[in-house]
Simulated scan of single mutants.
Amino acid sequence: MEKDIILQEGEKIRKGEQFYLDNLHNDHLEVFDARGRAIMKVDLAGKKLGDLPSNRRI
């Protein structure tokens, strides 16, 4: 059984990565790796909106 979340365009949120709903805008998820480093933001339909700044951390 696959543990990844498949997004549109073939991107994945992999097992061990963390994500949360952005509380300021409530319209996208922010995804972080297992070490808390920013990876990308994704809209609620599963489309990647872009990368997050590399200095962002949880």
Rank of each mutant, 00 (worst) to 15 (best):
F32I: 07
D51P: 03
I5T: 05
K41H: 10
P53Y: 03
D33Y: 02
N23R: 11
V42W: 00
L44W: 01
I39D: 00
K15L: 14
L29V: 02
D22I: 00
L49D: 09
L44D: 06
L52V: 12
P53E: 10
K48C: 05
R35W: 10
E9W: 03
E30I: 08
L21P: 06
G36H: 07
K47E: 07
L24P: 03
R37D: 13
R14C: 11
K48W: 00
L52T: 11
H25V: 12
D27R: 12
V42C: 03
V42D: 00
Y20G: 10
V31W: 01
D27P: 08
P53W: 02
K12D: 05
K41A: 03
G46R: 11
A34E: 14
H25R: 14
K3H: 13
E9T: 04
K47A: 08
L29N: 04
I13Q: 02
Y20N: 10
I13N: 02
I39F: 01
G16W: 07
H28I: 04
K15V: 06
G36F: 06
R35T: 14
N26S: 13
D4Y: 04
G10R: 08
R14V: 09
K15S: 15
D43E: 05
V42M: 03
I5M: 06
L21K: 02
L24K: 12
R57F: 06
A38H: 04
V42G: 01
M40G: 04
L7N: 03
P53L: 05
R35H: 14
K41Q: 08
H25F: 14
N55L: 13
Q8P: 01
H25M: 12
L21I: 13
L44H: 03
